[in-house]
Design a protein around this nucleic acid. Structure first.
Lengths: 343, 343
DNA sequence: TTGAAAGCGCTAACAG
DNA sequence: CTGTTAGCGCTTTCAA
């Protein structure tokens, strides 16, 4: 069923039917009703491709996910973000187009998406320091919103981000208040903007109490279980080991926990973990003494919603001014012990 | 830059240029080269929407992800599957269109995707027993491939699946060989086809040794950390507790581990876990005595690739015969202890 | 308030 | 081997 045949059946022109269906005001109410009910009866759905060609709008938003050869990791945060954004797209009538590319071809992927007209805008994930994609997208003049901020760029751009600095500052303070002085940070890849901010918050809290951050208590890398484990093992073997670990990933936290156990120490008595992932219900709800904070999964989803909303309004209203939205991290600080007394 | 202007610059008709670009044989080699280099120079990219309208092919494949209100869970397997499928799509020139819908609107979403012509086919996730989507998609005559099989349907359909039955049978045998007799299965939602198959394999192995599966050692539900924890706690409190747990999810395994520890037992000495997720590097590579098997993340990704490949060939060759592909689960069985001696 | 006609950018008969 | 001519199904001036 297409517009033409529907129009014929109604004895109207395709123009009028189109107008009635798309809510143009110049159609008489009687005609509109007649058209609407006929369309419903015939289960008429306008052909997307034709509409796109005629209007010049793709009614689709792109997400480019680079995959590296080195580390086969799909950011676990990705699924939740997508779920949040997808909700908004569905309601607004946009398709979500996901492109998986080897990371060395990422720039080309943006170029093609833009010049082939597949999407009206893109959402940009995991910004790095001095992220080159800002310049690239500005060149393409393709609307975009970044999930996260970019340090080291002077150009204005739109973004949605969690307040990582403050979240990690608060978490660090939480541990400091309990009496911890040797606090380890298991952080993400240093090239990532979010990791930089987290480190900043951590250092800020330490410095405010006159503590110099110890590089031996800092790990930067992919936040895997192995990372947490290796870090915990080696740090706990230090002459002056940490009494608490701060990390932002479920997997890392699991690894840290294993490292602690393998060292014959007890979680929550000898060593505490503070982490940042609401999958860690077992830390929150268990009998454990460990403190935890924030809610990655649900807040990432919310970030997805807000990013999508912002991008759509850029596209539809043709916004030229960039916008920003700094989400507060959801802190869920539980009870905890202080450091174990020295033996 | 569009076809027409490119053709004008070359002093050719749009038709010839189109033919040269699309590899039609009836173009002289000289012309083809001239066209190709001009296109490259002008960075010409054909407009996707126009191409789609003209050819009647969306060059896109849909994935519908239902979201339930009750449990806010995006299957963690999803991201890896998508990554695998996305690789194939990118190479074949297809867009991947992901639709997030409330689960009660799933059927409508398929209908719209089909009648609006947004996609040429769909990949169907997480089949349930007697999955209604098979009938629906057959009605729509929209090409599809299921990731997983559907029990209780007589209609033929295309699928790619892991050999869940055999994987769980082998894993159970592995534990039986070590001397375990009380083996718990922490399983997925019973309505899911994969869960049914896993249970089947587990039961088959037990029965072959004359052991009657004990319903008290079976949990069925969302595979969360809490599920693993709660199951382990209550099962370990039984008069005749399990000496080993079999589960297929990282999160569940974490929970089981917590449950074991909270009961004052030691992993790998008093109780073993066998699981099914290659994120569990910490079980495989650690000092632990626990056995593990299979590789969810990488095998899910491979499943994504194979599903995508199959669907594309259905679409392009217009296959009418359904096909199937039973992947062998990657078993990585480590060393383990048998059950702890009775005290 | 409605309709006719042109066109979005491409492909695909059909000629030559 | 190349070009002419119609569309694909919709939107959008421009007229009536």
């Amino acid at each position: 069923m297409n517009l033409k045949t529907l129009a014929q059946e109604l004895g109207l022109s395709p123009t009028t039917v189109s107008r009635a269906l798309n809510g143009y005001p110049e159609v008489s109410e009687a005609t509109r009703q007649r058209v609407l009910s006929a369309a419903a009866a015939a289960n008429y759905q306008p052909n997307t491709q034709a509409k796109r060609l005629a209007t010049g709008r793709a009614m689709a938003i792109g997400h480019i996910i680079p995959i590296s050869d080195r580390h086969e990791i799909v950011n676990p945060v990705f699924a939740d973000f997508i779920a949040g954004a997808g909700e908004i797209y569905a309601n607004a009538g946009y398709d979500m187009v996901i492109t998986i590319v080897p990371d060395n071809l990422e720039a080309r992927a943006y170029g093609e998406l833009s010049s082939k007209g597949n999407v009206d805008g893109v959402l940009v994930h995991a910004p790095r320091l001095n992220d080159h994609r800002i310049a690239l997208l500005d060149d393409l003049s393709l609307p975009y919103v970044m999930h996260g901020r970019v340090n080291g760029t002077r150009k204005p751009y739109s973004w949605v981000d969690v307040n990582n600095t403050r979240a990690f500052e608060r978490a660090t303070n939480f541990l400091l208040d309990l009496g911890h002085r040797r606090i380890a940070l298991i952080n993400g890849i240093s090239d990532m903007d979010f990791a930089r901010r987290r480190k900043l918050g951590y250092e800020r809290a330490l410095s405010a109490r006159g503590i110099t951050p110890d590089p031996a208590l800092l790990t930067e890398g992919e936040m895997t279980e192995a990372q947490g484990h290796d870090s915990a093992r080696s740090m706990l073997a230090l002459p002056d080991p940490p009494t608490a670990f701060l990390t932002a990933s479920l997997l890392s936290a699991m690894g840290v926990r294993r490292g602690i156990e393998e060292n014959g120490l007890t979680m929550g008595r000898d060593v505490s973990i503070v982490t940042h992932d609401d999958e860690l219900g077992y830390l929150r709800n268990g009998t454990a003494q460990e403190p935890i904070f924030t809610a990655t999964r649900s807040s990432v989803r919310e970030a997805g919603r807000r990013c999508a909303q912002m991008l759509i309004s850029h596209i539809e209203r043709g916004d030229t001014q960039p916008r920003s939205d700094l989400m507060e991290a959801v802190l869920v600080l539980g009870q905890s012990t202080g450091p174990a007394p020295k033996r």
